[in-house]
Design a binder for these strands. Structure first.
Length: 310
DNA sequence: CGTGGTCAAGCGGTA
DNA sequence: TACCGCTTGACCACG
C-alpha cells in the first residue's frame, strides 16, 4: 500500500480521562472583594500543575497535537488587575515546555470570542490585541518553536467587504511577532472558507479549515489553496460534528466517524501530513472512540494510538 | 448526585 | 427583546 499522508488527531483543553482542570477560574468580582492576589496565585499554580499532568497524559497516550485552554491564567487580560504571570512561574513553563519539546507535541491556542480584531469599537480592538499578546507570552514562556494562534475574522458590522478591510488593516498594525503566529479560520455564520483564503492571500497567514463551520457556512474552494498557505508546515484542520439537525451549529459530544472517514477520503490525494483537532464535548474520549471506529471501518494503518497513515 | 445560575469581555442569529 | 452558541467550562448553592 502506498503511503500518502500521515494524520494526527488532537483534542482541546481537558482530558476526560483525568479528573483535573487547567482552567479553574478566578473571577473579577472575587478579586474585587479584597484585591488579594494570593488566591489568584494558587489558582495559577493549580492550573499549571494540571497542564503538566495533561501534557504527561498526552505523551503517555501518543497524543501529538493539543490545544491549551485560554483560561490557563485567569484575569491575565483584565485591565485593572496587574500581575506577573510569566517570570513568577518560569519553573513551571520551563518544565512543561521541555516535555512538549522533547515529545515534539504540537501546541496551539484558540483565543476566545472576545478577541475581535476587526471590531468597530476601539476598546474592543485594543483588548483583542491584549488577548493576542497574552497568548503569545504563554507560548513564548513555554519555548514553543512553532507558535500558532488560531483566530476568526470577527465582526460583520457594515458588511463583509468593509469588515474584511478592517481585519486586514488592523492585522497589519500588529507587532511582527504576533503577525507571524496568527492563522485564520472560517466561521459558521459570516466568513466562509473562500473568504478566509482570500484574506490569507492578502496577509500571508495560514488558513485553518474548520469542517463543521464549513458545513454551516458553505463556499466553493480548492483544498490545495488551503494547504498551500501552510507552506512547509503541517496544516491544521478542525473537525467536529453537529449535535443534531435542529441545533446544527452546536457541537456534538462525539465525532460522526462515517463523516470523518469520508472527509479523509476527500483530502488524501493531496499527500500532506495533517493535524486534525477534534472539537467535541467529550474531548480525548471522543478521540479514542473515533480511533476505534476508524480501525473497525477502514484499513488505515495506525502507527500509534492517535496517528494513522492513509 | 444532578442541575440551575453565575462569571469580565463580542458577535450574529433565532424565537 | 431575550436568549443561545461560539471560544470553550468551573463551581457553588440547592434539592
Amino acid at each position: 500500500m502506498v503511503i500518502y499522508m500521515r494524520i494526527r488527531l488532537g483534542y482541546v483543553a481537558i482530558s476526560k480521562a483525568l479528573d483535573i482542570t487547567s482552567s479553574s477560574p478566578f473571577t473579577y468580582s472575587e478579586y474585587l472583594k479584597d484585591k488579594n492576589l494570593n488566591k489568584l496565585d494558587k489558582i495559577i499554580v493549580s492550573n499549571l500543575e494540571a497542564l503538566e499532568k495533561i501534557i504527561d497524559y498526552n505523551i503517555k497516550n501518543n497524543i501529538h497535537f493539543y490545544r491549551i485552554s485560554s483560561k490557563i491564567i485567569p484575569l491575565a487580560t483584565k485591565d485593572d488587575v496587574e500581575f506577573d504571570y510569566i517570570l513568577k512561574y518560569k519553573l513551571y513553563y520551563d518544565r512543561i515546555g521541555e516535555k512538549i519539546k522533547k515529545s515534539k507535541m504540537r501546541i496551539d491556542f484558540h483565543p476566545d470570542q472576545f478577541c475581535v480584531l476587526n471590531s468597530t469599537k476601539k476598546e474592543v480592538v485594543e483588548n483583542s490585541i491584549k488577548i493576542l499578546e497574552y497568548h503569545y507570552k504563554i507560548l513564548n514562556a513555554l519555548g514553543i518553536d512553532k507558535k500558532i494562534l488560531v483566530i476568526h475574522v470577527g465582526s460583520n458590522v457594515f458588511g463583509k467587504e468593509k469588515s474584511i478591510k478592517r481585519f486586514i488593516n488592523n492585522f497589519r498594525k500588529l507587532p511582527k511577532y504576533i503577525r507571524d503566529i496568527i492563522a485564520i479560520e472560517n466561521d459558521d455564520k459570516v466568513f466562509n472558507v473562500s473568504d478566509v483564503i482570500r484574506i490569507s492571500k492578502e496577509i500571508n497567514v495560514p488558513v485553518v479549515l474548520d469542517y463543521h463551520h464549513h458545513k454551516c457556512n458553505e463556499s466553493f474552494f480548492d483544498f490545495a489553496d488551503i494547504f498551500d498557505t501552510w507552506k512547509e508546515d503541517v496544516p491544521k484542520i478542525h473537525f467536529s460534528s453537529p449535535r443534531n439537525k435542529k441545533d446544527f451549529r452546536s457541537h456534538s459530544d462525539y465525532i460522526d466517524s462515517s463523516d470523518f472517514i469520508k472527509f479523509i477520503g476527500d483530502i488524501k490525494k493531496f499527500e500532506r501530513d495533517i493535524d486534525i483537532m477534534l472539537e467535541c464535548k467529550c474531548k480525548d474520549d471522543s478521540l479514542f472512540r473515533l480511533v476505534r471506529q476508524i480501525k473497525y471501518k477502514t484499513d488505515y494503518n495506525f502507527i500509534d494510538d492517535t496517528t494513522f497513515l492513509v
